Amino acid sequence: MNDVLKPELIWIEGRCYRVNDVMTNVSAFQEQDLYETELPYGINEDENDEDDNKIEIKKVDDNRYCTSFHVSKHYLGSIIGKKGATVSRIGRDTKTDIKIPRHGENKDISIYGSNESSIKAAKRRINIIVMSSRMKQTATHFISIPMNLPNIMKQFENFKASVLRECSGVGLEESLFIRAEKLHLTVGVLCLMDNEERLTASKLLTEARDKYITQLLQNYQPLKIRLKGLSYMNDDPKEIDVLYGRVEEVNAPAGLLQQVVDAIVTHFYKAGFMDKEYGRDNVKMHVTLLNSKYRGRVKGVDEDTNVKKNKKRETFDGSQILSKFSDYDFGTIELNDIHLSQRNSMGPDGYYQSTCVISCNKQ
C-alpha cells in the first residue's frame, strides 16, 4: 500500500505526476506542481514547457487543432476502458475529441480540440495510461554494456572452474553460471511492444549519448572499466539468488560510470519508457556471474528462454565463493559501446541481439 504522505511519482514527457492510489482508475493521476528544488537532476519548469512544445499540433481550421501519435495496439484497450469509459472521460475532462484506431487498423491516435493546451492535456493523460500499462509488462529489452571481451571471458572461465573445484555449498552447480559470451553490465530494463517503440527507444539512447554521455566522458576517453570483486543481491550469503561482479573506473574519478548509467536511466524514465528499480535514484551496477534462475538450464539452450515459469527459485550457498574469491580480478575493458539489447535472443557472436548500438568514443 502506498504511503499517502509520500505518493508514487512518475515522469511523463518531462512532467512529474503523482499516483494517489494504484487501485483507482486513471483519472486519479494528477499533475504534481513541484518547486524547482524538488525536481530531480535540476529539471525546471522551463524544460517542462520545452518538452510540451515538442508535440506537433496542426491547425485544422479556424476553430480546431489536431495532433496524431503512435501508441502500440497492446495499450489501446487500457486507453479505451470498459465500454469506452476511460477515453470518454479524458475527452470530457480536456474538452477534446479523441479518435482511437479500431481493431486491425494500423493508424495513430488523433486528438482534436479547440486549443493547443487542451490537446496537450489529453495527450499527457493518454501517456500516463501507456506508462502505467507498460510498467506491468514483462521486460523485452535492456540497456547493457558488454563485458564479453576475450580477456574477461578467459578470466571468467578460470573463475568458474576454480569455484566448481574448490567450493561446495547447498544448491551450487555449474548451470548457475552465466555464459561467458553474455557477460554484461545491466543499466536498465524496459518493455518495447512494437517496431515503432523500438525506434523511439533507439532514438532515446542516441539522445542520451549526445546530451549526457559525451560530456561526462570527454576527458576520459576511452573510459577503462575493471571488473573486480564480488557481491550478492540477498541478505544472507548462504541463500543467494544473484552473485555479481563489481566494476570500477581505471583512468577516471570514482563514480563517473555511475553518473553515466544514471543519466541514461533518467532520460528513459522521463520519457516514460523505463522505471527506476525499487525507486532508487542510482542504478545498482552489477555484472551477473551466477543466477539461481538459470538452475537446471539445458546446455545449448538460451538461459533466458530456458527458465521454467512459476517455478520457485532455489537459492545457493555462495559463502565459500565470497570468502575465497572476494577480490577476484576479471580484467579491464574499454567502454566503447552501449547496447539496447533484446532479451531471449542471441546474436552471431553469442551476445544478446542488439536493437541499437551507440558509440561512446569521439567521432
Score class of each variant (00 low, 15 high):
Leu243Ser: 03
Asp97Gln: 12
Met233Trp: 05
Asn310Ala: 08
Ile12Arg: 00
Asn127Ala: 15
Asn234Thr: 14
Ser110Glu: 08
Ala252Tyr: 01
Lys312Gly: 08
Glu13Ala: 14
Gln258Tyr: 06
Lys308Arg: 15
Gly300Val: 02
His339Leu: 09
Lys228Leu: 08
Glu116Ser: 09
Arg198Glu: 07
Lys54Tyr: 10
Phe325Trp: 04
Thr200Arg: 15
Leu199Arg: 05
Arg198Pro: 03
Met233Ala: 14
Asn195Trp: 07
Ser319Arg: 07
Thr214Lys: 10
Tyr41Thr: 01
Ile264Gly: 01
Leu9Asp: 04
Gln137Cys: 10
Glu36Ile: 14
Ile338Trp: 02
Ser133Cys: 12
Tyr65Arg: 06
Ser78Gly: 15
Glu197Ala: 06
Asp97Cys: 08
Thr214His: 13
Ala139Cys: 13
Glu166Tyr: 07
His103Pro: 02
Ala28Ser: 13
Ala271Thr: 00
Ser292Tyr: 09
Pro150Leu: 11
Arg125Cys: 10
Ser162Arg: 05
Tyr75Thr: 01
Asn106Asp: 09
Thr200Pro: 00
Lys362Cys: 13
Lys83Trp: 04
Thr332Val: 14
Ile338Gln: 01
Gly81Lys: 00
Ser132Arg: 11
Glu116Gly: 09
Ile111Tyr: 09
Val163Gln: 03
Cys356Tyr: 08
Glu181Lys: 09
Met135Gln: 14
Asn106Trp: 12
Val187Pro: 00
Lys293Tyr: 10
His267Gly: 05
Gln137Ser: 15
Glu56His: 13
Lys182Thr: 08
Phe268Thr: 00
Arg15Val: 07
Val287Asp: 07
Leu217Met: 01
His70Pro: 03
Leu199Ser: 09
Pro222Phe: 10
Ala263Asp: 04
Ala254Leu: 04
His184Pro: 06
Phe316Gln: 00
Leu149Ile: 04
